[in-house]
Design a protein around this nucleic acid. Structure first.
Length: 249
DNA sequence: GCGACAG
DNA sequence: ATCTTGTCGC
């Protein structure tokens, strides 16, 4: 009898940073950092909220599909499960993919996103394999990472703006600052350039500090967390009905 | 050894 | 990221 507890312990036993680094090198090798994407009609925002419980952390992975460029919520999927992998800087993807991948897979059976906007970095990462790159390559969907804090790279200002640059002087992220708001770091994940990633994210900025897909996914994940406490895990569900969607538009 | 360190 | 009361300011 393999209890959820046994499964989690087995995951912990198998997860080692050294193996994760190897996987990230593979991810980075398969990432395409040039513009190779179709016209964007549907953009998905990905985010994870957590909740403490007796047995550990519960992760609420949310994938919210928005129309582009109108930014209306059209579909949404949530996957809830116990999170067994710890947060280690540089290895965020291995913690969050466990709940994001099942949610994205199920949402994709209903609607195909043309672009993914992920909370965290893309290639602005020590091994060029941040969570946005990770998700983008695994699903082979164009992706962009939007982070609130720097992880890797030097901040340099050029005539056309401020960027994060790597040890070779290559731009790996655009830094966007808006009056009254703290800056955000925009880096390509997969099938996009720094330039285009920045332009796309700028076109999705509305009310808050973050682009709409990320902001909506964040709000939904936190609302689901307080309104839904499953008695058995894992659980995945479509987020809500038409009235639920209209509340986020 | 020391500092840095997405969510 | 989460936990968590009151408090400062528009």
């Amino acid at each position: 009898m393999t209890s959820p507890e046994d499964i989690c312990n087995e995951i912990k036993r198998r997860f080692t940073p050294s193996k994760a680094y190897r996987a990230q090198r593979w991810i980075a090798q398969h990432a395409v950092i040039e513009d190779m994407y179709e016209p964007v009609r549907i953009v998905a925002g990905l985010d994870v909220a957590y909740r403490r419980s007796e047995e550990g952390s519960i992760g609420y992975g949310v994938v919210a599909a928005l129309s582009y460029p109108s930014m209306k919520l059209v579909d949404c999927e949530v996957f809830i499960n116990k999170v067994c992998v710890p947060y280690i800087p540089g290895l965020l993807a291995f913690r969050e993919m466990a709940v994001l991948a099942p949610a994205l897979t199920r949402l994709s059976s209903r609607i195909k996103p043309d672009l993914l906007v992920v909370d965290g970095h893309g290639i602005a990462h020590p091994r060029r394999a941040g969570i946005a790159t990770h998700v983008g390559v695994v699903f082979d969907i164009p992706s962009i990472g939007v982070a609130k804090k720097r992880l890797y790279g030097r901040e340099v200002t050029y005539p056309d703006g401020t960027y994060l640059v790597d040890e070779n002087g290559n731009k790996i992220a655009a830094i966007i600052t808006r009056s009254g708001k703290s800056k955000i770091y925009v880096s390509p994940g997969h099938r996009l350039s720094v330039k285009t990633s920045s332009a796309l994210i700028r076109s999705m900025l509305r009310r808050g500090r973050l682009p709409e897909p990320t902001r909506v996914a964040d709000r939904i994940s936190k609302e689901i967390r307080t309104s839904l406490t499953p008695r058995s895990l894992p659980l995945h569900r479509r987020c809500g009905d038409s009235s639920f969607y209209s509340r986020f538009s």
